[in-house]
Computed example of a mutant assay.
Amino acid sequence: MTHELKLREIGAERQISVPIVYKGHSLKTPLFLDLFITKQIIVEVKSVEKLNPVFNAQLLTYLRLTDIPLGLIVNFGEQYIKNGFHRVVNNFPGE
């Protein structure tokens, strides 16, 4: 996926470290984003038969920690890839 984005000249970074800060205290283990596209969209890549609600919670946590409004879960485990895209929003304007 990253290769295809680069071919299209879309900036994408993989495995970006996100520190977890709780009440001013930085936790030892950071979180890692699967893809960060144009520093505006977080993409979590999965390959499962059925999406688990924890995936939405995970992505929403990433969005809140980074103050990014939009994220996508892309599930390559679906029969048709078009059915594998799931949008997650964090205080998106107009939502």
Rank of each mutant, 00 (worst) to 15 (best):
Val18Ala: 09
Gly77Tyr: 09
Thr66Cys: 15
Met1Ile: 13
Gly24Ala: 07
Ser26Gln: 14
Arg8Pro: 01
Arg8Asp: 04
Thr29Cys: 02
His25Met: 11
Glu78Phe: 07
Ile20Ser: 12
Ser17His: 08
Ile81Val: 12
Leu7Gly: 00
Phe55Asp: 06
Glu78Cys: 08
Thr29Asp: 11
Val18Arg: 13
Ile81Glu: 00
Leu5Lys: 05
Tyr62Asn: 07
Leu60Gly: 04
Val89Met: 11
Glu9Ile: 08
His3Leu: 04
Phe85Tyr: 10
Ser17Trp: 09
Gly84Trp: 02
Glu49Ala: 12
Asn75Leu: 06
Ile42Glu: 01
Pro30Ser: 09
His86Pro: 03
Thr2Lys: 12
Val54Thr: 09
Val45Cys: 02
Lys6Pro: 00
Glu44Lys: 13
Asp34Met: 02
Ala57Cys: 09
Glu95Val: 11
Pro19Ser: 11
Ile42Gln: 03
Glu78Asp: 06
Pro69Glu: 14
Val88Thr: 02
His25Arg: 15
Gly84His: 04
Thr29Arg: 13
Asp67Ile: 04
Asp34Cys: 00
Val74Lys: 07
Asn91Lys: 15
Phe92His: 10
Gln79Glu: 13
Tyr80Pro: 00
Lys28Gly: 05
Leu60Ile: 08
Ser47Phe: 11
Gly24Asp: 05
Phe92Ile: 05
Gln15Thr: 06
Leu35Ile: 14
Pro19Gly: 07
Ala12Thr: 12
Glu78His: 02
Val21Arg: 10
Ala12Lys: 05
Leu5Ala: 04
Lys28Ser: 14
Ile20Tyr: 13
